[in-house]
Design a protein around this nucleic acid. Structure first.
Lengths: 191, 191, 191, 191
DNA sequence: TATGAATGAGCGTTCATTCAT
DNA sequence: CATGAATGAACGCTCATTCAT
């Protein structure tokens, strides 16, 4: 089935191009021509793979969501004490974002656009993964009293919030914030 | 000086209208006509107070920045042990954001637009306020060893990150997250 | 009747201002605000003296037409041989235009606008004055055979055409062209 | 290279349409829609060939300048006594203008607009051609004493000035003025 | 399938004109 | 009379989308 492969490959190349362009100038200022030029194809050809400009942003986001979930799954697969695994998850998430600044940058466009891109699902998955680890830690007896599922949002938020500060000021050393985040959001929760 | 008063009042009314419109449909989808209609004036009259559509967003942001700074100053003015004051600052910030959902919603537009709106300065001021309190706590001997100025970004991030989750999913109870944030970002830092 | 005087004086001041502005930036690029500012009054006050922006150009032109006619009449009043009077008329016309570069510059706007400003009447009056002098010269026997009323347009054109060259390139020394024009259009016509 | 041909052809068609529209209602009153409609294409398509409305006027002028130069070159190519060639040049120029009333009409818009359209260069070329013929006539001994290069502007002006009178009053028989112009500006210069 | 010329709805901005003060 | 804020029609230009080739 060469057609399918070609279509998929072309979609991926286009998404790579769109990701770079969106990250560089922002979705609002990105033209279909810009994406096509970045991908080295003609403007009209973009519509062979995507229905609209908005669909391009949605697809870019979906790819981020999928990759983010993979990173989450990978981090959740490690063995060891629950809070160590939580620390690993936090570090993994930060490393993933720092390693993919383009994906991170496009997040702002996703927040701003009002399309029904299920960003909430990404957050939910993230919170649930954290909540599971907190529950494990509770079972292990390594969790501070009074800490529970309600605090998962705070852990997720700490990561996301550092990302926001980095977006607003690229000089913020996002990767170096992994340590402090772990110290606050993991070590501070130990019994 | 009736002129000055009128112009300022008209500017404020327009900013109120713009804030509502931007919060409702997003800056990218907001038309000058929408803002004018919301303010009950003619489209052309918007240009009596603002040079351009972008200037409107900038002014809306500047007002947010100023109000945010006021909220910060108010929270910093309380007396008591440093970490209690940090808790107050966090609760105050969350309360401010929860009480002004429109301002908060427009933040996403500011992140997405690439105009030189000094969002970084807002973050910096916030981090510095937190860092000052952490330094005070250190002097009081109430701070956990190893915690310092580097962790201010995490505290600020936790608040901002919860805001992001609320923006992505309005069902997230932002106001109720103040408690967990304090438990993680303040109580977890105690010696 | 102080009102009448005031209104007329105000009109004149406004026309002076309009003439300066139109000459400086061209009618197409001149705003009512520009004229008002040049006259030192408020924008709306312009409409107390003129019905519209176009009426301003028309009035400026009418004033030029009247002054041009006066210059023509003055030149026609001199005594002496017909061709000497023609030379005086040419020199007077050129001197008038060179002395009022602003009026001359606005002529281009009058040519370009399609309003029914009777520029043709100005040309007609000019041609008729020249034709009268040529007829006088014919009666005096000082005119070359074959030259008559039909050549008046050429004499008028030579002046106007030098004006055009000066409008297109202000470095053209309009005043200095009076001599050559007379040599070609007057001396060349002698019997 | 079908692309180049098509683009050039389309440009020419658009310039033809623009020329007609500008001549009919004047540049100031001509809308992009008018030009597009005259060319039978959509408004936006105009921008595939021209950057702006002003660029359209500039291109129309450039085409006039080029054609004018061709007419000049053709007239300069004839053989014979210098003053006969000058007469031919004058007749050729007038015939060219009379045959292209649209081009001539747009000249007024060029005079009025302040864009840096090098109308002065057209005049200069015209003057230089005339001046060369006058120098030849001097060498031939057929030129009246006292006449020289300084009179070239007058000859050029006589043509241009008759054009102006025709622009102001289309009833003026421009073509019929060629004879009188020659009689004044050529015959009057003979030794 | 790939192209890019063509489209035309849409929007930001301008500015002549009006009129309440 | 004088003012200048308010108006809103008008227009240049953009660009996502389409479709003939």
């Amino acid at each position: 089935m060469p057609k399918k492969v070609d279509r998929t490959a072309r979609r991926e190349e286009l998404l790579d191009a769109a990701l770079r362009v969106f990250a560089r100038k922002g979705f609002a200022a990105s033209r279909i021509d810009d994406v096509a030029a970045e991908a080295g194809i003609a403007k009209g050809s973009v519509y062979l793979s995507f229905d609209s400009r908005d669909a391009l942003l949605e697809a870019v986001f979906q790819r981020y969501a999928a990759r983010s979930e993979q990173a989450l799954a990978a981090a959740s697969a490690v063995r060891g004490p629950a809070l160590d695994r939580l620390a690993a998850l936090v570090r993994g998430t930060v490393a993933f974002l720092a390693a993919h600044p383009e994906h991170a940058r496009v997040l702002a466009d996703v927040w701003a656009c009002r399309a029904p891109l299920d960003l909430a699902a990404v957050h939910r998955a993230h919170r649930e993964a954290v909540a599971r680890l907190l529950a494990d830690a509770r079972a292990e007896g390594t969790l501070r009293p009074g800490v529970g599922a309600a605090h998962a949002a705070v852990v997720v938020g700490a990561v996301e919030g550092c990302l926001v500060q980095w977006l607003a000021d690229p000089r913020t050393p996002l990767a170096e914030l992994a340590g402090p985040i772990v110290e606050v959001c993991v070590e501070g929760l130990r019994a």
